[in-house]
Design a binder for these strands. Sequence first.
DNA 1: TTCGTCATGTAATGGGTTACATGATTAC
DNA 2: GTAATCATGTAACCCATTACATGACGAA
Lengths: 182, 182
Amino acid sequence: MATRSSALEFAVLGLLHDSPMHGYELRKHLNALMGWGRVWSYGSLYPMLKSLTKSGLIEASVDPTVKRNRIVYTLTAAGKEYFADLVEETGPHSWEDGNFDIRFAFFSKTPTRTRLRVLEGRRRRLEEVLARAEDPIRRSTKKRFDKYTAELQRHGLESVEREVQWLTQMIEAEKRDADASP
Amino acid sequence: MATRSSALEFAVLGLLHDSPMHGYELRKHLNALMGWGRVWSYGSLYPMLKSLTKSGLIEASVDPTVKRNRIVYTLTAAGKEYFADLVEETGPHSWEDGNFDIRFAFFSKTPTRTRLRVLEGRRRRLEEVLARAEDPIRRSTKKRFDKYTAELQRHGLESVEREVQWLTQMIEAEKRDADASP
DNA sequence: TTCGTCATGTAATGGGTTACATGATTAC
DNA sequence: GTAATCATGTAACCCATTACATGACGAA
């Protein structure tokens, strides 16, 4: 049974799902995947690889084809199982809020049903944010904001609205796909 | 001389700049200010208030008008000075990247020149992100992404582009204001 | 031969959260 | 009288970063 794991752990397992890699390579892929935001340092990556090895989710081996000091990590059967469990997690207090981007990045390894749960869950929570912000009771009692604070608020809500729209598109696409294929 | 402080510290000082408050109240304002994202817990707020008190940047006092167990904090002269220093910080390795939102939230307490530096700095960094992403050399050597990863990438870049546009608007508004007033 | 980048790691620190503990006050 | 919210705090943990340290390999 998989319980809340860190973003990095999830990403490492997800990447190793495709093919074995060594740490340095892994980090490059990691940062390419997430691009703009989110950059992980070696100071967190290498200890994570050690810890995952110790718990048997990945396996370390030295690549014999190169002289270089490379330690290649492979996902074990237990690791695959664990990752599959993580991917299914969508409970209300799950870690999906702050790590939606990573979850989305590994949607190709996520069952369609779970994909929909994740997308709809996020949309629901964002809509709650919008509802709270537009609540007339709150608005009237709320302290007056200065020019910049108000603009920050407006811009933030606009971003949230846009993401809701995007999520809706993604959800519709998922549903079309689900209908099209058995 | 003020060096890198935490987001919470900055926000607390900024809020107390307006008026004295007690912890509970402070947290509500904090979370209203940032709204959607960023929520701080008491577990970080109260220790921060203690530490700021110890370093003399804020002053604790018991509100005599209420029986309630309230400790009201006031920004000291040293605290004002320190905050002013923090607000000026815009160096390349400053903390402005991950905390742009908070800096923006307190723009009304930031000199116009510094405001422009912060806005333009952020725009420049975001434009670098776009440039890297659109670099044809990188694009050709880059590993093929699956459907979802590609969409994540696309959506991320779109958001960045939109923020660049927004920043440009903000910058223009600042310049207009600067021209209009002495 | 020197510079960039590949490659792996550790120790100290940071900036928080979670869960817990306590109790007063207000609204129903 | 009881539930919600006001109000303050602490201890343990978490997930990461920063700065440092080491060294091999390839290209100019």
